[in-house]
Amino acid sequence: MIARESNQDKIILLVEDSKADIRLFQEVLKTSTIPHQLMVVRDGIDAMAYLRQEGEFSDSPRPNLIILDLNLPRKDGREVVAEIKADPSLKRIPVIVLTTSSNDEDINQSYELYVNCYITKSRNLKDLFKLVQGIESFWLKTVTLPFE
């Protein structure tokens, strides 16, 4: 395996149906000093098609990190996590659940499905902005992400 050069773009797959949350991620990451590409899909079916490079996503780059909402149209985020972690070619990609749910059952089930972390979204825009900056700082600057 050849080591990835540190200046190569980090590919982030954001699986989110909220236009406002997508826009927030885009705005926060505009100020990033880390080379990155933010790829966005808005439901669970498109997330799996993207990850499996099917259909319109056949040339899509493999993500280094997945940020996933749980409550998605067409295919629930829990189903998406289960499929990712059951697929030997995808299971090493870190998955961050970022959702409005603070339900104990959702948290426990997510960790049972081997998510790498579970974050409850703040409803306060300023706090949400800081949260996205924290994700960027930890997951793009501090952590060494897997690669193919």
Rank of each mutant, 00 (worst) to 15 (best):
H36N: 11
Q37E: 14
Q37T: 15
L38T: 06
L38E: 03
M39A: 13
V40Q: 02
V41K: 07
V41E: 02
V41C: 04
V41F: 02
R42P: 00
D43E: 14
D43R: 15
G44A: 11
I45F: 10
I45G: 04
I45Y: 05
D46N: 10
D46Q: 11
A47M: 07
M48I: 09
A49W: 03
A49N: 10
A49R: 12
A49M: 05
L51I: 00
R52M: 00
R52D: 00
E54G: 06
G55K: 05
G55S: 02
G55L: 02
G55M: 03
E56R: 14
E56K: 15
E56L: 06
E56T: 10
F57D: 04
F57S: 00
S58M: 13
S58N: 14
S58C: 12
D59S: 14
S60Q: 10
S60M: 10
P61Q: 05
P61D: 01
P61S: 07
P61E: 02
R62N: 01
P63D: 02
P63S: 04
P63R: 04
N64L: 00
N64R: 02
L65D: 00
I66N: 04
I66E: 01
I67G: 05
I67E: 08
I67K: 07
I67H: 08
L68S: 13
L68R: 13
D69H: 04
D69K: 06
L70V: 11
L70H: 10
N71C: 12
L72K: 13
L72T: 14
P73N: 13
P73W: 10
P73D: 09
P73L: 05
R74E: 12
R74G: 04
R74H: 12
K75T: 03
K75G: 02
D76P: 06
G77H: 07
G77A: 08
R78K: 15
R78P: 00
R78M: 15
E79V: 00
E79T: 05
V80C: 06
V81N: 02
V81E: 01
V81W: 02
V81H: 01
V81C: 09
E83D: 11
E83G: 05
E83Q: 13
E83R: 14
E83L: 14
E83T: 12
I84S: 05
I84G: 03
K85I: 06
A86N: 09
A86C: 03
A86Q: 07
D87Y: 09
D87S: 12
D87A: 10
D87M: 09
P88W: 08
S89Q: 11
L90C: 09
K91M: 10
K91E: 10
K91R: 14
R92F: 15
R92L: 15
R92K: 15
R92H: 15
R92W: 15
I93A: 05
I93G: 03
P94W: 13
I96Y: 11
I96H: 07
V97H: 08
L98Q: 12
L98H: 11
L98T: 13
L98C: 11
L98P: 12
L98G: 09
T99K: 11
T99R: 10
T99P: 09
T100R: 13
T100L: 07
T100M: 10
T100K: 13
S101D: 11
S101M: 14
